[in-house]
């Protein structure tokens, strides 16, 4: 039974089946499976998809499909981890989102998916996120890393606003900040006081590891 649910969940993620993934996650909870074991299986599945994407065997719609399936199952399992008080191991906690005024989600979703696959605990806030929402989430989740995306030249300065807000709230030094998106350059990242920038999603994962020394 256990194996059937876990293997089914892995398969649902790899077949981009959102509904099946959510149902199997619920069943895992009902059957009292070890939520950490389930989470680990999900991470393995998304890593396989991420690796295939990296090799060029899978494409962006596949990656986003798998991410959606993962996202459908994740909150159910996370809730169970919290309820049982199990100790979850992760490389670190990331809060991510696309800045206020900007609704581009693809790059941000790619980075979040690959970070999850790598073993980070990722809180994807979504798009059009205001500075105060980032700050609140960093505080709430005790994040190690903040990852912000901006695709347009008009919205890029919003990243600076978030950093300034963090300074004001005394949270800047608690978190490593990485920025990305079409409108961002290495120079811009440095100028606004971010800790790192990378133009690609796989590069962002390496950067995240580097920033927290893992």
């Amino acid at each position: 039974m256990d194996t059937e649910i876990i293997e089914g969940l892995k398969k649902a993620i790899k077949e981009y089946d959102t509904e099946k993934a959510a149902n199997l996650a619920k069943r895992a909870v009902e059957e009292k499976l070890d939520p950490l074991k389930v989470l680990n299986a999900m991470t393995v599945a998304i890593r396989e998809v991420g690796d295939a994407f990296g090799r060029g065997d899978l494409w962006l719609p596949d990656l986003v499909g798998a991410a959606d399936a993962l996202q459908a199952a994740m909150p159910i399992i996370e809730e169970e981890i919290k309820r049982t008080g199990a100790k979850r191991e992760s490389l670190g906690t990331v809060v991510a989102g696309t800045v206020f005024g900007d609704i581009h989600s693809i790059g941000k979703t790619m980075v979040c998916t690959l970070l999850t696959a790598e073993g980070f605990k990722v809180h994807d806030l979504g798009v059009n996120i205001k500075a105060e929402q980032f700050v609140e989430a960093i505080d709430k989740y005790n994040a190690d890393i903040l990852a912000m995306s901006a695709l347009m030249t008009m919205t890029a300065p919003e990243q600076k606003k978030v950093i300034e807000r963090l300074k004001k709230e005394g949270l800047r030094d608690k978190v490593k900040i990485m920025v990305g998106g079409g409108a961002i350059t290495e120079d811009f990242a440095r100028e606004i006081g971010a800790d790192g920038y990378d133009p690609t999603a796989p590069g962002a994962v390496k950067l995240a590891r580097k920033l927290i020394g893992k």
């Binding site: 060029g56 962006l60 719609p61 693809i106 079409g182 999603a201």
Partner: peptide
């Protein structure tokens, strides 16, 4: 069309 490797 969307470039399905990098989203551009």
């Amino acid at each position: 069309p969307q470039n399905m490797t990098n989203g551009a």
